[in-house]
Design a binder for these strands. Structure first.
Lengths: 258, 258
DNA sequence: AGCACACTGTTCGTCACCGCACGTAGACCG
DNA sequence: CGGTCTACGTGCGGTGACGAACAGTGTGCT
């Protein structure tokens, strides 16, 4: 096997729609139909996928990227309502029938995603097969995140919410080091940057994280889990419950990438 | 026409599935199929329709009642994530595939609703007709409420949130007098009872509402709209947009009730 | 009528978080 | 290598909401 082919194989392996849990869970037949319609795209940090109220063109199935659904108030304050990683898809409004949302979607962690034209996603959804059920269950998981955010924003401290957010982001990440500024985290949680500085300082002093300029490394998952509020667990368990049957397909397509 | 028959006609008119916007919007054929499966139930104030995590038996289409979806934290604090009146249905998880939710549903304003067995709702949903699209669009409206609640809880004052809540409740009510204690309102907004007393006092001094023991009467809708945050408008417009095609059916069934 | 209870109004100390302002230190670039 | 920009750390006054405690008052029950 030549080095070139190996590189090509590696590249194929590095980026595969199967890295997205929803796509990976599709029956081989459905997956094969969708595959030629999927387009790999790079998602740079900060890119805005949807502006509130604007027509949505594509749905995005993240593989390594993480997106954040959040709402920006008239006065410019913002708050994340849910996050989307490789466990889900950005753009549920496309098949829910609304076509637009009042919230915006931005890339919170740079990476890749497979995008699918809205019309095609809707078409696939309307076939009513496995994919429909899958997307609906995922949408319900999204609703859990949203309502949990509402309660969490109301009752839990900045430090607790930071822990929750770090854990959820970590679950969607490959490494345990997150590349992001405190400013960005602050805008996600809808608090002042200084609030994050302080909370992160506490967590660092406790030895749970290590914070450098533009980087946050998680040292003790257990520590964060002890310091967070119940919301993390609720969201995580609900995702797991609703998407319990989501397992990687073991078919020829996957095999050829191994 | 005897008095008795008139009474009976009145009773029929008083309670009709058509009072629920979703049911009223169904094509005559779909409506006729559903009608014998619907069961009118009284919903007393405070009744808990769903407990978190429990199997849901029925979906509820409110006519005069209003329900509140809210989350209760481990420490007992609570927060409403969305409200449901005659514009919607309680129990979307039934057709979304989850069967349970982590939030609970309680009756916030006493009244009536038509309930439908979960299995039957799911069946109807899976026919994939008009009802499916309608329910999906309603679900998206629900998501808007949830994410708006998250942002609103984070950034707006108690008084603003009280105004938003009063207006949304008023839109779902028949009269402009709401029958509920400040204690109850407080638990909906997830704040202390004293906070509501104070905010309500301000609004009363402004002449926007009139507050008696267990009753809140809205005197100036315009005043409340000026005092509330943007969130009210966003939610209302989104409901209107998504359910724009929801109009009362003008068919024989409706006519026979006139 | 009278009692009991639940709802409302008010007060006071406390605290988490805000907004602002300023100092410092990595990182990138010419 | 020195300059500049962006990110991080800190301090300070202000404040909205909290928690607890208590005093009136409408409502329903006996």
């Amino acid at each position: 096997m030549s080095a070139q082919i190996e590189t090509r194989e590696k590249s194929l392996q590095r980026h595969s729609p199967n890295q997205n849990h929803l796509l990976a869970a599709l029956p081989a037949e459905d997956f094969a139909r969708l595959l030629p319609l999927l387009e790999l795209v790079a998602m740079p940090l900060g890119e805005m996928l949807y502006e509130p109220g604007q027509q949505m063109r594509h749905a995005y199935f993240p593989t390594t990227a993480i997106a954040s659904l959040h709402y920006v108030t008239e006065s410019g304050a913002s708050a994340e309502t849910a996050g989307v990683g490789n466990e889900g898809v950005v753009g549920v409004a496309l098949f829910m029938g609304g076509d637009t949302t009042s919230s915006s979607a931005v890339v919170q962690t740079a990476g890749h995603a497979y995008r699918l034209e809205g019309r095609l996603l809707k078409q696939e959804f309307n076939r009513g097969g496995f994919m429909q059920g899958l997307l609906l269950r995922y949408t319900q998981a999204l609703m859990t995140q949203m309502s949990q955010s509402a309660a969490c924003n109301r009752h839990h401290s900045v430090e607790q919410r930071l822990c929750r957010w770090l854990l959820l982001t970590l679950d969607r990440s490959q490494s345990n080091e997150l590349v992001m500024t405190q400013e960005l985290v602050a805008s996600m949680l809808g608090v002042r940057r200084e609030g994050i500085t302080e909370a992160a300082g506490n967590l660092q002093r406790s030895g749970f994280i290590s914070s450098r300029r533009g980087h946050i490394a998680v040292l003790s998952r257990v520590g964060l889990e002890a310091a967070t509020c119940e919301c993390y667990d609720v969201v995580k368990k609900e995702i797991r419950r609703l998407l319990a049957d989501v397992q990687h397909r073991q078919d020829g397509i996957t095999a050829s990438h191994r």
